[in-house]
Computed example of a mutant assay.
Amino acid sequence: MACGEIIDLAAAVSHFEPVRLYTRPEDIPLAKSMLSNTTRGSYEVDIIPFATNHLWVRDTGPVYVQGTTASSEKQRVAIHFGFNEWGRKEPAEGWPQMTADQIEENHTFGKRVTDSDNDSSSLISITSKLCLEGGALVSDGDGTLIVSESSIIGDERNPGLSKEEIEAELRRLLGVEKIIWFPGFRDLDVTDVHADAEVQFVRPGVIVISRPYASAQKEWHEVYQQVMDVLRGELDAKGRPFEVHTIDEPDAKLILNSASGHEEDPATNYVNFYYVNGGVILPKFGDQEMDRRAMETMQQLHPDRVVKQVYVNALPLTGGVIHCATQPVIEVE
């Protein structure tokens, strides 16, 4: 079922921009067959045979930014943050144990992606001393970065590095001027509370925050309050106060009821959407009222973009949604 949702996501994105779909070689025939039965856009979906064991390319893949050469020419830069299974997490109960070779494949995935890039001549590849995942980083592209302490600071990912040292490296690599931290919770989920599940920038100065459903675990309500408290009265890198909007999460029981025997909390964050060229790909979870409200809010916030919803039911049960499963490859302007 998750495979079908990934195919649907790839097809939806292809209405706006080209797609690279990294697929294990043995799964290529299935991927091609499933893709042939979907309604694709005018852009190509390139199915690439690749050794991979996670669909969360936001975390395992390179983080692309725009850099400047010594001669002031703009250049695409791929940053590798040393993925280590979200702080060396063990697979959840009921999930298969990975071999040492599979773990190494995950660790090297981002580097192998850039090494195989057909346009690698215009790419600079940088390996950071930091260990973190792309989902931990929420940036406005204008100097402001939002992150959680629980998903970056600590011996599980960055032993011996202080908060100040981590900030210095993030500033160096991402070109950010202001870093806003919220506490988060260690071990609340596999990511230790990635920022991209809680908050996203609509544009510089405008933010949308995920508000948990009433019956959600109390710690998620505390995370929501952490983010609200941190941003209240805060200014961004350019001195702008934040305009804050909220999107209510759906009733997770609607997803759990369709997954017999599954008891863990699914990821049901509408803010885990993906920006495409000229559009937004927004999750649709099956809670008709909440899906409708999320769609209306996003349309109001993005009058100049097409908002397209993609139904997801299996992906949330594996720990992520649309933003987690995508990674943009920026075009140098």
Results as ranks from 00 to 15, higher is better:
61 G>V: 02
309 Q>M: 03
204 P>G: 11
85 E>Y: 04
91 P>N: 03
297 T>K: 05
156 E>G: 09
135 G>L: 06
210 S>H: 15
97 Q>H: 02
321 V>I: 11
99 T>V: 01
323 H>I: 11
197 A>V: 12
218 K>E: 03
259 A>G: 07
94 G>S: 09
102 Q>F: 10
197 A>R: 05
313 N>A: 08
85 E>W: 00
213 Y>S: 07
140 D>F: 10
249 E>M: 11
107 H>Y: 13
76 R>N: 13
169 E>G: 01
249 E>V: 01
180 I>S: 15
293 R>V: 09
94 G>I: 05
91 P>Q: 03
319 G>P: 04
134 G>C: 00
204 P>E: 07
154 G>S: 07
328 P>R: 05
195 A>P: 14
90 E>C: 00
270 Y>H: 14
45 V>Q: 08
84 N>S: 11
124 I>Y: 03
275 Y>E: 10
41 G>E: 14
59 D>C: 10
59 D>P: 10
9 L>R: 00
148 S>D: 06
203 R>E: 15
191 T>A: 00
16 F>S: 02
322 I>C: 04
320 G>T: 05
171 R>P: 00
82 G>W: 00
255 I>M: 00
54 H>S: 08
148 S>C: 08
236 D>N: 14
325 A>L: 05
314 A>H: 10
2 A>H: 12
60 T>F: 10
332 V>F: 10
86 W>T: 13
45 V>A: 05
242 F>C: 12
25 P>E: 01
133 E>A: 03
163 K>Q: 15
220 W>F: 15
229 D>Y: 03
169 E>L: 02
37 N>M: 12
214 A>H: 10
190 V>T: 03
91 P>E: 09
148 S>W: 08
271 V>T: 13
130 L>K: 09
23 T>N: 08
88 R>K: 04
312 V>F: 05
218 K>P: 02
38 T>M: 12
58 R>G: 03
237 A>G: 14
248 D>F: 00
76 R>E: 12
5 E>L: 07
94 G>F: 07
327 Q>F: 06
250 P>G: 05
84 N>G: 12
217 Q>P: 02
94 G>N: 09
123 L>A: 11
183 P>R: 08
204 P>W: 03
163 K>P: 15
162 S>N: 02
215 S>H: 14
159 P>V: 08
250 P>K: 04
192 D>A: 08
131 C>Q: 07
52 T>R: 08
308 K>E: 15
135 G>C: 06
81 F>E: 04
273 F>Q: 02
182 F>S: 10
192 D>I: 09
236 D>G: 12
131 C>L: 01
81 F>T: 10
127 T>F: 02
93 E>Y: 08
327 Q>C: 03
264 E>P: 02
328 P>V: 02
31 A>V: 06
207 I>N: 00
66 Q>G: 03
92 A>W: 09
